[in-house]
């Protein structure tokens, strides 16, 4: 049986005190898997991964990563716990060069130059433009840089918030495939996506959230053709609230 890397149990979280957006959300993420979170707008998907990253305060519940309780960590401590977070937008520093973006996230390690060389070998389009300002990159290349920055610190878990948003269908597919490929390297991905069908084809497991609660979860392949999924996206029927 595959080991569970991340376990969130009965998480309540929100931006404003006593006004939780997430109400008793629980998930389990297996090691080296791609786990997808989907749901209608306002479901709390992004809030949930922000809560794991420590960006949104957790008012109750527990988040455990590899046996270590990480509930309420500070965002800047994520890397110490082996977590990287790729925000949906503004996920690179536009005024820094591509190399400087990578140097920034690797500033605390002694093997920064070697790691950057590895990353440039893996993401060759970035290597060609390494001394250009990151703001000049195309949407797809920006996401590539954001993923490279996340990977730079050798995380065990990468939280990705709608990485395909605003990209062309081809670039979106490439970014999602890149996420899938990372699992082959032993990295665990927790992905929030609006691009449901494309993401589900690549994911191992899928959670559906609505109104800040768990609605349903199952293997992604099983859910792909499930009529319930489309109904939820059409704003219709809800599965019994958790």
């Amino acid at each position: 049986m595959t080991e569970i890397l991340l376990r969130a149990t009965d998480v309540f979280a929100g931006y404003v005190k006593d006004l939780p957006i997430l109400r008793q959300v629980s998930i389990e993420v297996k090691k080296a898997s791609l786990t997808l979170i989907i749901g209608p707008n306002g479901a709390g998907k992004s809030t949930f991964i922000k809560a794991i990253a420590g960006v949104v305060p957790v008012s109750s519940g527990h988040i455990v990563l590899g046996g270590q309780d990480i509930t309420g960590i500070r965002p800047d401590q994520m890397a110490q716990y082996g977590i990287a977070y790729v925000p949906q937008s503004d996920n690179i520093f536009r005024t820094l060069t591509i190399r400087q973006n990578l140097e920034l996230v690797l500033r605390k390690t002694k093997r920064g130059p070697a790691r950057i060389a590895d990353l440039f070998a893996q993401f060759t389009p970035l290597a060609d433009k390494q001394n250009e300002n990151a703001g000049t990159l195309s949407g797809g290349q920006r996401q590539m840089l954001a993923v490279a920055m996340a990977l730079a610190v050798d995380p065990s878990l990468i939280l990705m918030d709608e990485p395909s948003a605003g990209l062309s269908p081809k670039a979106a597919q490439d970014v999602l495939q890149m996420a899938r490929d990372l699992t082959a390297q032993g990295v665990t991905i927790l992905l929030v996506e609006q691009n449901v069908k494309q993401a589900m084809r690549l994911a191992d497991h899928c959670y559906i959230l609505a109104e800040g609660r768990n609605q349903h979860d199952a293997g992604a392949a099983a859910l792909l053709n499930d009529p319930i999924v489309s109904e939820i996206y059409l704003g219709g029927k809800r599965v019994g609230a958790a």
Binding site: R74, D76, I92, F93, T95, L96, V153
Partner: peptide, 17 residues
């Protein structure tokens, strides 16, 4: 770079460690 990163995008800087 750290100072410039924080000036440009404090929340991304925080999640970048």
């Amino acid at each position: 770079y750290t100072l410039r990163a924080v000036a440009e995008n404090p929340s991304l800087a925080a999640v970048s460690g």
